[in-house]
Design a protein around this nucleic acid. Structure first.
Lengths: 90, 90
DNA sequence: AGATATCCCGGTACTACTATCGGATCCATG
DNA sequence: CATGGATCCGATAGTAGTACCGGGATATCT
C-alpha cells in the first residue's frame, strides 16, 4: 500500500470541516470568498460540501483567514466531534 | 490547466512551515512524533524538510497538536514571512 | 568491530486534491 | 416566459501528498 484510501472517519471529519466553514461564511458569496482566499470557487464548494475530505493546510488556512475563523478552534471542533464519535462507536 | 504546479512562493512557504515544525519538535524523536500524530515517519520527515510544500490540513493539525503548536500562530508565521518576501520582491 | 537508534535519501505506487468545462437547478426580477 | 445571479453536479486532466522499500550516514554503547 502506498496511499491509504480515506477512512470513514476522515470523510466524517471532512464533512464537519466543510460544514463549519460554510457556517462561518454566512451570507458572503462563495465566489467572493474563494477569490479573497485565492482559490477556485469549485474548490471552496467541494470543501464546504465535504467532497474534499483532506484539503491542503494552505487552502484551509486561506479560507479561514478570509472568514476570520481560528484554525485552532476549527481543528478543535473537528477533532472534538471525531473523538466523541469514536467514543460513541467503540 | 487542471492543477497548477507549485509556485516558488508555495515552495518557500512549505520550507518555512517545515522549519517551524522541526524547531517545535525540539529533542523529541521524529518516530515518536509521527506515531503520536498518526502519520508515517516518512511523511513527517518530508514535511519538516520542506519536500512536501502543501501537506493536508489534518496532517499539519495532527503534528501541531502533538507538538503543542498553535495552528494560527504557525500560519501567521508562514504567511507573515511570505508577505514580507512579496513586499521585498515586488 | 558489532549492535542499536536516529535521521537522510531515491525510487516507487496510487489515492487525493486543485482546477476548468459544460450543463442543471433554484430564486428573484421584469 | 426570459434573464441573471448563485449554487450544485458530473466528467475530465494533471500535479501533489502519503506511504512502503531498500540503502546509507552518523553517533553511542559494549
Amino acid at each position: 500500500m502506498v496511499r491509504l484510501p480515506l477512512t470513514p472517519a476522515e470523510v466524517e471529519r471532512g464533512r464537519r470541516l466543510g460544514a463549519l466553514l460554510r457556517r462561518a461564511r454566512g451570507d458572503r458569496s462563495m465566489l467572493q470568498t474563494a477569490l479573497a482566499a485565492r482559490i477556485s470557487p469549485e474548490t471552496l464548494r467541494k470543501i464546504e460540501s465535504g467532497r474534499v475530505a483532506t484539503p491542503a493546510f494552505t487552502t484551509v488556512a486561506a479560507v479561514a483567514a478570509v472568514l476570520d475563523v481560528s484554525l485552532d478552534t476549527l481543528w478543535a471542533e473537528v477533532d472534538r466531534n471525531d473523538a466523541q464519535d469514536a467514543a460513541a462507536t467503540g
